[in-house]
């Protein structure tokens, strides 16, 4: 509780420190605008037009439904990866044999291009939710798994000894000695896993389903509707930035105050 109050207390200052980032995004948009003036509306619609399309979109029920569908797939996929990646990673980390064994398998999972997984998933599950969710899990699970594994593997033996010398009870050992260390590894892994999930879900939808934002993007492409395509991209980037910078980053800062 105290922890969340602290996050809320520091939030305005954190938000205010974002002005520099806003400035550089606006400069980027200025370049985009120059691109529009050089290449014309068909190739690259102006930022203002895109934002107007976006505004109209966010007021249409249809698009909101599609966003809902995509959000559902991404959250289920990411949730599964989060659960299994963390638990299995922790277990693997505690046993030297398990971690030795899992490494090459993780390398295979990471090394396989997501597009190949989509093709396989389409054969296995057909065109639908399962294909998308499966691809998301396959792409973000290894990232979280490795994070959890690293976290447990790198636990500090000296601190364990210190805990023993003061006869910490087991729950204190876990909460005060192991958990903060593991968390400092696993949390960034969650963040990058989430980013991965969000990107993959769009790609999988674009190829394998007829609904969701990815499918909308495919339709916009086939109709050469660049403003809609860019507006969709803006939604994707905007929502990812919102989750990462407005929700996760403040938590991360508070959790990792002791680090930097």
């Amino acid at each position: 509780m105290k922890f969340f109050l602290k996050i809320l207390k520091d939030f305005p200052a954190y938000l205010w420190s974002g002005w520099g980032a806003v400035a550089s995004i606006l400069l980027f948009i200025a370049f985009w605008d120059v691109g529009n003036q050089i290449y014309g509306n068909l190739v690259l619609p102006s930022p203002l037009e895109t934002f107007k399309t976006l505004y109209a979109m966010l007021h249409s029920k249809d698009i909101l439904e599609q966003i809902d569908i995509t959000l559902y797939r991404a959250s289920v996929g990411f949730g599964l990866s989060l659960l299994f990646g963390s638990v299995l990673g922790l277990i693997a980390g505690f046993f030297a044999t398990a971690s030795m064994m899992s490494r090459p398998i993780v390398t295979i999972l990471v090394g396989m291009p997501p597009i190949a997984w989509i093709v396989l998933a389409m054969i296995w599950f057909g065109m639908g939710d399962e294909t998308v969710i499966f691809t998301v899990v396959v792409a973000s699970f290894p990232i979280i798994f490795v994070g959890a594994l690293q976290g447990t593997r790198t636990l500090d033996g000296e601190l364990k000894e210190m805990a023993d010398s003061f006869a910490f009870p087991w729950h204190m050992k876990f909460i005060d000695v192991y958990f903060p260390h593991i968390f400092s590894y696993i949390f960034p892994a969650w963040v990058s896993g989430l980013g991965m999930a969000w990107k993959i879900v769009i790609m999988a939808e674009l190829l394998a389903t007829s609904d969701g934002m990815g499918a909308e993007l495919a339709i916009a492409r086939s109709q050469l509707d660049t403003p809609t395509a860019l507006a969709l991209v803006t939604i994707m980037i905007g929502s990812l930035m919102f989750i990462e910078y407005i929700i996760l980053e403040p938590i991360k800062r508070e959790v990792e105050l002791w680090r930097v």
């Binding site: 400035a23 550089s24 606006l26 400069l27 948009i29 200025a30 370049f31 605008d33 120059v34 003036q37 102006s46 930022p47 203002l48």
Partner: peptide
């Protein structure tokens, strides 16, 4: 120019 508008916002 509209690009100038964005640059002004960035400033």
């Amino acid at each position: 120019n509209s690009a100038l508008g964005w640059i002004a916002l960035a400033s």
